[in-house]
Design a protein around this nucleic acid. Structure first.
Lengths: 69, 69
DNA sequence: ACATAATGTAATATATATATTACTTTTTGA
DNA sequence: TCAAAAAGTAATATATATATTACATTATGT
């Protein structure tokens, strides 16, 4: 489950800890999402988007073909 | 948790049942998501997108302000 | 009006996202 | 270098998404 959260987070100059606090979630949750080891909920995806000023598609879209691999 | 799943599903002429089968999920899950009573996982959101040929933003985006209400 | 399909929804069970705590490894800056 | 910050990660607990089964309600076509 790859995504662009890490890049976007760094662009707005936040640490995992800061992003987590801003959203009201644990640092571990952010870490695991960035590593692609979690399948986050839509609500959490949206909160991440708001925090880093990106859209769902920008952060989480995966083409159908690559999603199979 | 509003979304545009129902509209998109009807546009591609699928019943909840057919969409559910296409994705490999229960009809009830589709029903509850359309009704805004579930907070679906990113993976499921993507599978719905693929099935109805829409993007995450098209189906699931909610502006930050309206997400608070 | 009626039969059937489609959809809503409730109760319980199960899988898994997320929290909590804690420790390790890697990065960064002086 | 070296110390501190940042990030990776493991174990267990908890909350909740989703499955299962079943029944009720609404929509659709004849």
């Amino acid at each position: 489950m790859e995504n662009n959260v890490k890049i976007a987070r760094i662009q707005v100059d936040l640490t995992q800890q800061q992003l987590a606090e801003k959203i009201g979630v644990t640092r571990q949750t952010i870490s695991l999402i960035e590593k692609g080891k979690y399948n986050p909920s839509l609500k959490l995806c949206l909160e991440i988007c708001y925090a880093v000023n990106k859209s769902l598609d920008e952060l989480f879209w995966i083409d159908q073909e690559e999603s199979k691999t």
